[in-house]
Each structure stands twice: as structure tokens, then as C-alpha cells.
Design a protein around this nucleic acid. Structure first.
Lengths: 208, 208
DNA sequence: GCTAGTTTGTGAACGAATTCACAAGCCTTC
DNA sequence: GAAGGCTTGTGAATTCGTTCACAAACTAGC
């Protein structure tokens, strides 16, 4: 299959969100124009994005809401449940562990890890905080497929290396550092300080 | 000035992070090659990124660490202190309010807003939680320039509209919905569910 | 001050992503 | 069943971002 741009995948996520809203409201069809308006893009973009994966619409009519949302869930791999481990039970790890949006979309958080003995054994919204040392064994027995790094920057690369050795191929990084991993491991970074700096730049360099 | 790509601004942030590390270690010069290696890009990319703003290096030598970091701080608008309000004192709002990285980089959180009467009046790491109704008056008196939306999706567009009416031109959105704002307002979104879906896609459609 | 060895800054070439534009296909009405 | 009105799917054109490649400029060693 042809390589799909990351921006395309992001937009598919956005389209799916609207489709689910439409599904709830019982709408049966939607046009690329409508999806574009909501998602802040153009109708040509919507159709091109979808065309990478097949043709899902009917000319003159638009897209069937249930069919397209099911197709997008399939494409995005959201039909199955993903098993996720979170590394770090600090403020961010805790906020993530309790975030209902994850489970809703099929991301099942199986455990949270921390090195602080005071935290180990407690639970966060029903999820057990475990000793960091158990990570490797647990990933194996729990069949975890996604790891979330929610610890300070210093230890993050080391933790990522451990995660990679367990065989996990997808990592979401909240630590404010640039991490390096083998090419077959997908690492996505969420860096709040960097986003704020983007805003700072926009405010500073606005067209006069 | 020529329009600068968002990807360029992101990389400038990354370069600055390394430069500050080098500054702490007392290194005096650095080459585009070294910055590229650390930041996971190419030396040509580094030089091109910088060339949009001027020439900061010396041929044959590289870049002066203090000069370049100062220049980047200037470009990114990090010389001044930005005054930030956070809307929502839930888990995410609280995690953001206590995140030390913000103040460290000149983002001064002046207040957190919530509608829950139980929370109003309490403090989060020394930052007062205030009634949502005070938002407009406070932005005016406190001269806030950046707003962070950390509330559930339902109310987010409405809150954004209020923020826009106060005259704030930069917003960071953590609510898992697509928001619409006038063109002169920069809205950046951090959507954790969407990032996880990107990972799900990567795991599902890996080259065989 | 000449030579060898670096490293920058930048047009030009390339490649990737978006937008354009239109034929093809479907629905509805008469 | 023909005509009019939509909307898709997609090559072609365009725009945007990255990489190449090399002259220009610097340092160090002799």
C-alpha cells in the first residue's frame, strides 16, 4: 500500500468524530462538503483522503454515515481493543489514566507504573499502580501493545529503550524531550511547552 | 516577512532546547550537523530553518551557542513573559497548572477558572481557582494574552467564543473537539485521543 | 600568507501534499 | 426515459516543504 501522510490520518480521526456525532443524531448521509466545513478543510481534501483507501461514497448523494464511520474505524484499527500501559503516576499519568475518552475509543489502560514506593499498590480510577520493575514481565503477560511515557525528561530515553526491548511498537511520549527509537517503532510526542512556544511565535510575528 | 511553516517553528523549539542544554554544559559552539543529529533531522534542514530569520553562524566554525539561543528566544518571542489563563480546574487543568516547564519558559499562569463552586477559591500550586464569570474582567485587568482550554468537549466552543471576545489571540485547546475561531486568532489543539488513533493506525497498517 | 579542512548559506532540484477542475454516476421530477 | 441538479473520484496543476550540492568564508597548521 502507498504510504499515507500523517496529516491524512489525523484528518480521518477528525472525520470519524463528526460521523459518530451524526450517527448519534440519526443522520443517514453526509457530503464531503459538510465534513470539510466541520473539520476546517476542503471537500476535495476529504475526498482525496478517503480515496487512498477506497471509494465509500455515492455520486450525487454523499456518504452513508454508518458505512463510512465503520470504514474509518476499520482503517484506523479501532475495531480491536488496544492494551495500553502508562509509565509514570504523576499528575500527567494520573490525568491520562482517568481520562474517559481513551476507554471509550477502545484504548484499555491495563496498568500504570511508577518507581515511587509510596504510590505502588494504590489504584487510580481502578487501575493498579505497579512497580516499574514489573514492566517487562507485565507487557509480556498482559499483551500490551502501546506505551505512554508520562515521566520527567531525564529518565525518558532510558524508559523508552526498555519499552522497545519488550517488543512494543507504538509509544506516546509526554516527556519534554526528543526521543530516539528504531524505525519500526512509532513514537508520537505531545509536548505542551512546544505548543505554547508555537503560540508565542504566532503572537510575536503576526503580520503587520 | 515570508510566511514560516509550522514545522519550522516546531524545529526551532527543539533546537532551542538543545542549545540550552549546551549552554548549561558550557559549550561555546555547535554545528548544524550536531543540532540535526540530536533533533532527528538533517543539517541542511537546520540551516534552512535558521536562514528564514537571518544568518547566525560562522562558516567553518558553526554557531555560537549563546548567540544562537538568544536569537531563537527572540524569534520565538520568549524574551517577554506571557500571561496565561487556564479554563478548567479538572485533572488536565490541574496537571497543567502545576507543570513547572511552563513558568520556566516564561509562561506565567495567572489564574485557573472553573464553574464548580466547590473548587472556586481554592488554590492549585499557589494559583487561585476563580469563578468562570470573572474571566472577561480578569483578562482585561491581568492583561492575559494566552488561554488554555482544559474542559470537556461540550462547552469548549462556547468558551472559545468568550475568549475570542476578550481579545485574546492565542489559544491552546485540550478539549477533544474541533474548534472554530476567526483567522486572526491562533488555536492549537492537543488531542490525546487523536494521537493514540495515529498509533493505532500505524500498528494496523504496518508494511508487511 | 598559502594550503587543507570545515561548515555555513542558499539557489536549484526534487518530492510531497493540496487544490483545481471535470467527467462519471446517481437521484428526482416530469 | 430524458433532463436537471448534485456529489463523488481522480488525473493534472499547483503550492509547499525538504534535500542537494556547491561557492563563499572561516580556522588552523605550517
Amino acid at each position: 500500500m502507498k504510504r499515507i501522510a500523517e496529516s491524512t490520518v489525523r484528518r480521518l480521526s477528525i472525520y470519524l468524530r463528526f460521523l459518530e456525532e451524526f450517527e448519534d443524531r440519526g443522520l443517514s448521509t453526509v457530503s464531503s462538503e459538510e465534513l470539510a466545513r466541520r473539520g476546517g478543510t476542503t471537500s476535495a481534501q476529504v475526498r482525496k483522503d478517503l480515496s487512498f483507501f477506497g471509494s465509500f461514497g455515492k455520486r450525487g448523494l454523499g456518504y452513508s454515515v454508518p458505512e463510512l464511520s465503520s470504514a474509518l474505524r476499520e482503517i484506523l484499527g479501532l475495531q480491536k481493543e488496544w492494551r495500553v500501559v502508562i509509565i509514570g503516576a504523576g499528575k500527567i499519568g494520573a490525568a491520562l489514566a482517568q481520562y474517559r475518552g481513551f476507554r471509550q475509543r477502545g484504548f484499555n489502560i491495563v496498568a500504570v507504573y511508577d518507581t515511587n514506593p509510596e504510590k505502588i499498590g494504590r489504584t487510580l480510577e481502578g487501575i493498579e499502580i505497579r512497580a516499574m520493575s514489573r514492566l517487562e514481565a507485565d507487557v509480556e503477560t498482559e499483551h500490551a501493545e502501546i506505551a505512554v511515557i508520562a515521566i520527567p525528561g531525564d529518565g525518558a530515553q532510558e524508559v523508552l529503550d526498555r519499552i522497545v526491548r519488550t517488543g512494543i511498537k507504538a509509544v506516546l511520549n509526554f516527556a519534554p524531550v526528543q526521543l530516539h527509537a528504531p524505525a519500526d517503532v512509532t513514537v508520537k510526542a505531545v509536548n505542551m511547552a512546544m505548543e505554547l512556544e508555537g503560540l508565542s511565535f504566532a503572537l510575536t510575528n503576526r503580520e503587520s
